[in-house]
Computed example of a mutant assay.
Amino acid sequence: MGSAKDGNEVSVETVSMKLVKAVEEGGYTMVNTEELKSWVDNKEDMILIDTMPADHYKSKRIPTAVNAELPVAYADVTPEQREAFVSLLGTDKDKKIVIYCGFVGCERSHVGALIAKEEGFTNVVRHPGGIIAWIDAGYDIESDD
């Protein structure tokens, strides 16, 4: 029995290797769902950013998250998207910045982490499991519905 629900361990390995490479290249750290939940519950001093499209964010998000939609590829970031994202980061370069998107294979959070690092933020954390891992763990979500 492997890691993949569908039995396709190669797909899990492919996504895992892509994630490890992105983290190494990006120079940021990661947090798993359980630890992020404790940060949210303990009102950790952080900015939690959901990088999914606004309609997705409005329907389901991790509590306390703010929204800044980013594309799945860094090359596709528009100046407006970058500006909106950077404006959420504030001026404290040591502030914990936690970024997530939909799921492990989604790269929107990687794009956000790269931008935050480029802007000089030193405590950038990616939550790779995203909203899907949060929901799969059975944790409460917020929505505008």
Rank of each mutant, 00 (worst) to 15 (best):
S3Q: 06
A4D: 14
A4Q: 13
D6N: 14
D6F: 09
E9T: 06
V10M: 11
M17T: 09
K21G: 02
V23L: 05
E24L: 08
G26W: 00
Y28E: 05
T29H: 04
M30A: 04
M30E: 05
V31I: 14
N32A: 03
L36W: 01
S38E: 15
D41W: 00
D41V: 09
D45W: 01
M46I: 11
D50G: 04
D55A: 13
K58I: 05
K58F: 03
K58L: 14
K60Q: 15
R61D: 03
R61S: 06
V66E: 11
N67R: 01
A68P: 01
P71I: 11
Y74E: 10
Y74V: 14
A75N: 12
T78G: 15
P79H: 05
E80K: 06
E83M: 13
V86M: 04
G90P: 11
G90V: 11
K93W: 11
D94V: 04
K95W: 04
K96Y: 02
K96N: 14
I99T: 01
G102R: 03
F103A: 12
F103G: 03
R108D: 02
G112W: 00
L114C: 14
L114I: 15
E118G: 07
E118Y: 10
E119L: 03
F121R: 02
F121A: 00
V125W: 02
G129I: 04
G130N: 02
I131V: 12
I135L: 07
I135K: 07
D136Q: 11
G138K: 12
G138P: 00
Y139T: 05
D140K: 13
I141M: 09
E142M: 12
E142K: 07
S143E: 08
D145M: 11
D145V: 08
